[in-house]
């Protein structure tokens, strides 16, 4: 009885959520549908419906620039997520030692996150500029053989992006993990101490596994950040030197706007969507199974 009136069809509720209906169906279903559809066509500047099968995908995976981009995003993603997590966790652990000026330290660690990735990119572009940044400063201080210009070389430019990513994002990781640490029962620490387990071991084997939720939150945030790496790359390296720091996000936008090759751009965009779909489907199945188990248990 109760359920039936709550699930009745209420016109005002539908009218009120028209924007949601439009966005959910119009943008995230139909829009993506068209993107995938156009990836099978020979669209150039404007979409056409001249289907060419998988030709765009074949051309995509034969394009060196795309292959470099895919390698880069994996490398950048793994490096920056790992470093962010480790550094963020270390910061959180040190922040959790009943230190003085905790609020001050927190503000310092977190403020880069409030800034645009464009700003972050520019800041680090200058800090690492060979004629202006750290290298020049240390040489002026008398260390004349000092050489540190990662942005100039194709092999190291990606590491510079990772550093900038850590600078921007590890404060947030710290804040989330610190909240997780503070949520752990004091008795756990005491029990571990009584058993004579070294502190680092308690962290690795007991505390960290208990903070699954906080780690998951931080991880999701990091992943979203990796996908958004477009701004950082544009501001810091512009994809260079050469194509050394190109990313799929940059590649696709270039194909759509500058190189006017929509068909291939949409093929690239579809490839970007694929891992997201796989992960979402996987976690959806896990969630569904857990709910079913819970219902069966209840």
């Amino acid at each position: 009885m109760q359920k039936s009136w709550r699930h009745r069809f209420h016109l005002p509720a539908v009218i009120g959520t028209i924007p949601m209906i439009l966005v959910a169906l119009g943008v995230f279903v139909i829009g993506i549908g068209f993107s995938v559809l156009w990836s099978f066509t020979s669209s150039k500047l404007f979409p056409t419906y001249d289907f060419v099968g998988l030709a765009q995908y074949r051309r995509l995976w034969a394009d060196n620039r795309w292959l470099v981009s895919v390698n880069n995003i994996w490398f950048f993603g793994l490096m920056s997520i790992t470093c962010n997590m480790v550094f963020g966790y270390l910061l959180a652990v040190f922040m959790d030692q009943r230190i003085r000026q905790e609020d001050l330290f927190r503000s310092i660690f977190l403020y880069p996150f409030a800034m645009s990735l464009i700003v972050t990119g520019l800041v680090w572009q200058w800090a690492l500029d060979p004629n202006l940044g750290l290298q020049e400063a240390l040489r002026n201080w008398g260390w004349s053989s000092f050489s540190f210009a990662p942005l100039v070389s194709a092999e190291t430019a990606l590491y510079a992006l990772v550093v900038a990513g850590i600078w921007q994002g590890s404060g947030v990781t710290m804040a989330i993990l610190l909240a997780g640490l503070r949520g752990i029962d004091e008795d756990i620490w005491k029990a571990a101490r009584v058993d004579g387990i070294p502190t680092w071991r308690t962290h690795v084997s007991i505390v960290a596994p208990m903070m699954k939720g906080a780690f998951a939150t931080a991880f999701v945030l990091q992943c979203v950040g990796v996908v958004r790496v477009y701004d950082l790359v544009i501001a810091m390296t512009g994809g260079g030197p050469g194509i050394a720091t190109s990313m799929p996000a940059v590649y696709v936008i270039q194909l759509i706007t500058v190189r006017q090759n929509v068909g291939q751009g949409m093929a690239g965009a579809t490839m970007m969507l694929l891992p997201v779909l796989i992960v979402l489907a996987f976690s959806g199945i896990l969630l569904w199974r857990r709910n079913r188990l819970r219902e069966a248990g209840a």
């Binding site: 009745r8 966005v23 959910a24 995230f28 139909i30 156009w38 751009g265 965009a269 979402l280």
Partner: peptide
């Protein structure tokens, strides 16, 4: 209403989609 939660699910899915897939449409 009927289907509202499906719409919501699609919306949340949109939070994880790379922007590049939606920009051109």
């Amino acid at each position: 209403y009927k289907g509202a939660n499906l719409l919501f699910g699609l919306l949340v899915f949109g939070a994880f989609v790379p922007y590049q897939v939606v920009i051109y449409p």
